[in-house]
Design a protein around this nucleic acid. Sequence first.
DNA 1: TAATCAAACTAACAACCGTTAGTCTGCTTC
DNA 2: GAAGCAGACTAACGGTTGTTAGTTTGATTA
Lengths: 191, 191
Amino acid sequence: MNSVVQTRKEEIIKTAAKLFKEKGYSAVTMRDLAAAMGIKAASLYNHITSKQDILKAIIVSLAEEFTREMNVIKASDLRAIEKLKLIVALHVEITVKNTYGMACLNNDWMHLEEQLEHYLQLRKTYEQDFIDIIESGIISDEIMDANAEIIMFSILSTLRSLYLWIPKKEAVNANDLAETLSRVLINGINK
Amino acid sequence: MNSVVQTRKEEIIKTAAKLFKEKGYSAVTMRDLAAAMGIKAASLYNHITSKQDILKAIIVSLAEEFTREMNVIKASDLRAIEKLKLIVALHVEITVKNTYGMACLNNDWMHLEEQLEHYLQLRKTYEQDFIDIIESGIISDEIMDANAEIIMFSILSTLRSLYLWIPKKEAVNANDLAETLSRVLINGINK
DNA sequence: TAATCAAACTAACAACCGTTAGTCTGCTTC
DNA sequence: GAAGCAGACTAACGGTTGTTAGTTTGATTA
């Protein structure tokens, strides 16, 4: 019952995230989830209070983790390009660690109820911090002078899609992937 | 009843795509769709045969359009980088023209039933063609010698996410966006 | 004017949804 | 051995789901 051994509730949430990734929150029934756990639907409610509660547990903790790490990166005195590399590494690391949760974060956030506003606020702040870093890089002449929003969108789209791609590679080395990805995103692909 | 005036069925499909974008296929009920059309759910069935039929109409036509255009690009005798620019322009053009459909293609393909296999085959072929172009560019020394799959993934992730971003910009000029995006994706962002 | 037809309607269906209430089982702790 | 408790169970609820059947309406055509 400590942090090493996973509680029954944590098992349910993890299994739910896996199912949500495959079919989406709405298409997964409590009976589907129960079957995947090898129990009956009603038994789930000894551990969780509602389906919505599961979604909240998956998404909010991830969104808050991104926010915490972004604040660390923001507060550092690194150059803009180095900050971007840390953001790339952050996304790779979290996605490797929790692929199913990241799929859920990306695809099912709109099904949050009480927590929807909170999530949207975190996302908005995260994206603004991202843009701020890019713009500071443009000013310091590290980054080419293009639309900062397009640059942010382009990089973030790739990072947000990592959950689709990482599970296809066997034994991903997070450091290697983050490095290659940083190179492609920052230097482009031409010679 | 010709190609200029949109049939009732086409109106339904277009409205459905809009709703599917916002909540996903599974979360949209036939009663939701009917209400958005200003009619009752049962009346929908004078025009379509099933909910699944709507999904099929949205996704398959788009997937086939991408396949057709990819074949044209593939058959051209352009250099690899120029082919990539055409692919970027293709995604921008189709997404501007049919944002809701693209959202649906990206998020709801797994809810296809009879057509799922067909869709997956088209997608697989499209991605392989994409990789082939990148690899030919590496051989011809136009593109840096990195993992072709990572390059493809990185570019395609951005292109597939366009539906999220385009509606936020008022009056998108497809040509301008495609050009800026090509520049960022190919040349990178650093100076 | 009569006939046709697209497109709406009401009513209902069986199946499935998330969730609750109450109960039983078997292990751990006093 | 009694008590407590985590974790499973059965049974059932009120509501929602996609869909069908049969009917009405109002405009167009013969």
